[in-house]
Design a protein around this nucleic acid. Sequence first.
RNA 1: GCGGACGUGGCGAAACUGGUAGACGCAAGGGACUUAAAAUCCCUCGGCCGCGAGGCUGUACGGGUUCGAGCCCCGUCGUCCGCACCA
Length: 870
Amino acid sequence: MAVERYNPKQAEKRWQRRWEEERTYETDNESPKPKYYVLEMFPYPSGRIHMGHVRNYALGDVVARYKRARGFNVLHPMGWDAFGMPAENAAIQNNIHPRDWTYANIDAMRKQLKSMGLSLDWSREFATCDVDYYKQQQALFLDFLAAGLIYRRNSKVNWDPVDMTVLANEQVIDGRGWRSGAVVEQRELTQWFFRISDFAEDLDASLDTLDGWPEKVRTMQRNWIGKSRGIEIPFPLVKPQGEIDTVHCFSTRPDTMHGASFIAISPDHPLSLELEARNADLAAFNAECRRIGTSEEALEKAEKRGFDTGLKVRHPTEDRDLPVWVGNFVLMSYGTGAVFGCPAHDQRDLDFARKYDLPVRNAFYLVGDRTPVLDEALVPAKSETVVYVDHFAGLTEMTGQEAIDRTIAWFENKNLGNGITRYRLRDWGLSRQRYWGAPIPVIHCDDCGAVPVPAADLPVELPADVTLGKPGNPLDHHPTWKHVGCPACGKAARRETDTMDTFVDSSWYFARFTAPWHDAPTESAVASAWLPVDQYIGGIEHAILHLLYSRFFTRAMRQTGHLDLKEPFRGLFTQGMVVHETYRAERNGKSEWIAPADVVIEEKEGQRQARHVGTGEPLLIGSIEKMSKSKKNVVDPDDIIDGYGADTARFFMLSDSPPDRDVIWSEAGVEGAHRFVQRIWRLIGEASESLKAAEARAGSEGRALEVSRASHKTVKAVGEDIEKLAFNKAVARLYELVNTLAAPLSDVVAGKADADLAAACKQAAGHLVQLFAPMMPHFAEECWNLLGNDGMVATTPWPEHDPALVIDDQIVMPVQINGKKRGDLTIDRDADQSAVQQAVLSLDFVQSALGGNVPRKLIVVPRRIVNVVI
RNA sequence: GCGGACGUGGCGAAACUGGUAGACGCAAGGGACUUAAAAUCCCUCGGCCGCGAGGCUGUACGGGUUCGAGCCCCGUCGUCCGCACCA
């Protein structure tokens, strides 16, 4: 009987409608089942989903569906990270309101996501630009402010001259704005800050508990927090000329004190500022340093420049003085803004010393090698044993680390300095001079200062009418919005016109999903029961900022009673990118990118050649790169879903490449996935009538038993693979099972199978459908129906494997002679050592290899391998 | 410079805890069916030698440990990622 080809278009629509009608994926907070929270990083509503989204949500949906089938109460929500600059840019370019642009994009993308058939609870959907969401965020702000977790101060800020906004340190990459790429300038502004640095120790220490995170991400966070143990040592000025009489230096290597030959302070160090007022040359030097600042070119040149102040400080342990220099390489933002220079054991200090002719003194030598430092600083690992020159803190022959510990203790003992732990992590500036963000709920009064908006007056809503495109802050330009009475004294006052960094929005959305209808940021008990997110899935690009901010927010929300836990994400998975070949045409002497949709690939004698589909011109096949508009190597998910169906697209995304690696999108690969779908459809379709008549049970002997063994083994293995997110392996096992089932199924169709084999095939076919259901949910429902089942696979419990069927009675053991495989031994699984040995020695090829002799050794690894050593 | 990950066929990749290297897929080649094409099915597919059975060799490179190494140890080379005037 011929079976028509599977038509995903109709089937997928039909099942999506049914799931929606039956609210199959809506989650009940009251369910007694154990909870499981799966979350993919929510998208920015740019207008269309791209293949990266398809991969992200396909991965998460497998987990969600699998856990649901395993009996968990699964929370799998979706929302929109909807504030941000692209909406303002679009507004300026297309003369459309940011709100309208954003919500239209959300509508379009929601429709696309729905066409993927994801098992999402859409009833919990929200966008961060919804008034209700940012109202709750403002409530959080007020609570954080009251708890002292937010403060306001003047600060030098990173100013992006293109986007005309302030950037957090984390948003400055190589001296440029993370979004605009413009060289960042320094400006002085009054800004709101989160006290994230107060949590530095806990954020660092707690990384050790996150064993469900990739080591790589933990390392990146650890580096970012930048904990370092050191000491702060005061160096008294020999002849103070102003108010400052001591320079405090931070050092992680106080054991090298004997090698100190100068002090270097930052141009912005208080002492430098004091001197600058009286010394025009220094003022000029400092101005030059500030001008170059942290821009990329300055970092590249990295030329050490210094200015001798003429001042001297007293060495704390020796009878000598050290000159005080201002150095362009000393950062005010790290440590104390002052360091002692030890040229012998620091390459940067050595370069500086050589340039300005300062002494180079070894504080230690390598064991048995007293060559003094010349052009290369001596910087052995802290674990290496070295010989110290000066024995001031009891330093002799010991490791660097030992010496550091001793020195710190010694300084503390003598009251000459304090051991101190420093972090690179700075407080998080959250003020942005933008319109499309959550307004900061504060009112500035000339008499009362910065007054929080009373909770009852929330939300502070964005005005609908706004003029964008003028430099500066749009809310500040607004004719009326900012003018309000002071909540404290009633006098005329002004609203804060800055809005919050959009990273704030994404720092707690995962908590909001647990009760998005609640008239408070969270329903604390509910949120604490759902959290942490059991499996969070997203791109590695968020390894530092978003995840660190969310970890901070969870702590801050705990402190303010909104949650009761520390770590928001128990399991984290960072997926790889979707990449694609690039194509180029030479036109009028210029090279132009060509979209994959316009390319035909031909293969001739192993050579791949590309042609333009319209003009026929030959094209260059370029490198494989992340899909991007500029290189035109994007494939539109809509086209794929339209052509092959969502299931095929999802299945391809899960096949072949491990999910944490980049996946190369290829037409051939998608077609392969599609062929597999059609093959299953044919096999099940042809056999469906016979299978319906059969009973579903495991076979007891012969081929039926083999079929059952194969299917039960696959059930076990696929479950384990999904638990480990090794979807590519799970897919391979499904292929294997289908390959195994093909012949028995066609025998069933041909009437050549007995009742036992038919029963085993029926059960195996059912297993197969259930196993791929999390990956290809619509197709699975169709097949499930075809097999004569009434309910939906989506609500059917995961199959249990029979332990007896995953173990073979007979096993095949490879037999090696001197470590090289020479044959196999088929033997009872439970055969004991001596039985195996006997069987091995009686094998023909073993006997002929032995030539009548006794083996020197006979190694039997139970159930694995035999090695005969001659 | 510091930190991390990785290196397996033509390609994407498997290989449990040191135990048959290359499962599974893609591409390719050959064949069947067909008036033809599509679709489908069958066979081959790391390299070298051999008619064949089979043998040798092979997981970036050089050593080592082991009955046995893709996996462990030492060294070298290469690729990718993160951080970086961090004291």
